[in-house]
């Protein structure tokens, strides 16, 4: 399969006052189309930073990131925002749903940036919510849903625009075991049934085991089961 993500010599540092804090150093990585990649590593290893850069919500200090042929490290802010809206779906640890919007309205949010009319948007939202098994909860507000259901709404929001890539940052980190299993099963289904490329950051070995490939990140360096990548 073709590479959908190409990361070349990626470095990322943060600055605290005049002190440089390196997070990622000269990291290279390729992800195939349709791959379900899990990124593991201890806290502070740079997993989330790498995920954010791949998803276009953070920028590298050096190196390049290409997703489906687009070098996103060269896009300006507005082009990057546009690119994100049509190419990436995001799943966060704490769901990040908008509390004043219903499940339907939360899922509809990314579609407001498209040219779809109201009835087309409705159709897409219902389809996404049916895929995650919440077709009967569309008018519920986040506070009326369980954690697992909220995360499923977040996944519906992530897939409603049919993006190339799904990125998930600790998607089961705030869930009990049963809910976490449901979410992982759903992500597996999205990967296998809908051929979505998924990059997932997790601490949980059980969650990582559901992915098709696994990389470890430690002190900004990638390895496959301890071997440098």
């Amino acid at each position: 399969m073709a590479d959908i993500i190409q990361v070349n010599n990626l470095s990322k540092s943060y600055w605290r006052n005049s002190l440089e804090i390196p997070v990622l150093s000269e990291l290279s990585l390729n992800v195939n189309e349709g791959e379900f990649l899990a990124l593991m590593g201890p806290s502070g290893s740079g997993k989330t930073t790498l995920l954010n850069i791949i998803a276009g919500i953070d920028r590298p200090t050096n190196g390049s990131v290409s997703v489906s042929g687009t070098d996103i490290s060269k896009l300006n802010e507005s082009a990057l925002a546009k690119w994100r809206s049509s190419n990436v779906g995001f799943v966060f640890q704490f769901y990040n749903l908008i509390p004043v919007l219903t499940a339907f309205e939360n899922v509809e949010l990314p579609l407001l940036l498209t040219k779809l009319n109201k009835s087309e948007r409705k159709k897409h939202v219902e389809t996404a919510l049916n895929i995650v098994g919440l077709g009967d909860r569309i008018y519920h507000y986040p506070k009326q849903l369980s954690g697992g259901q909220e995360q499923r709404v977040a996944i519906a929001r992530a897939i409603v625009t049919d993006p190339l890539l799904l990125v998930a940052d600790e998607p089961t980190g705030d869930l009990d075991k049963n809910s976490a299993d449901e979410i992982l099963t759903l992500m597996e289904r999205l990967n296998k049934e809908f051929n979505k490329t998924i990059v997932m950051v997790t601490h949980d070995p059980h969650a990582a085991s559901r992915a098709s490939s696994l990389l470890h990140l430690d002190k900004g360096v990638l390895s496959t089961n301890g071997q440098s990548h």
């Binding site: 925002a81 990040n96 908008i98």
Partner: peptide
Amino acid sequence: REYAVFKTLGFSA
């Protein structure tokens, strides 16, 4: 945090 979500989803300035 919500504004960060909006920006992530592609909402502009």
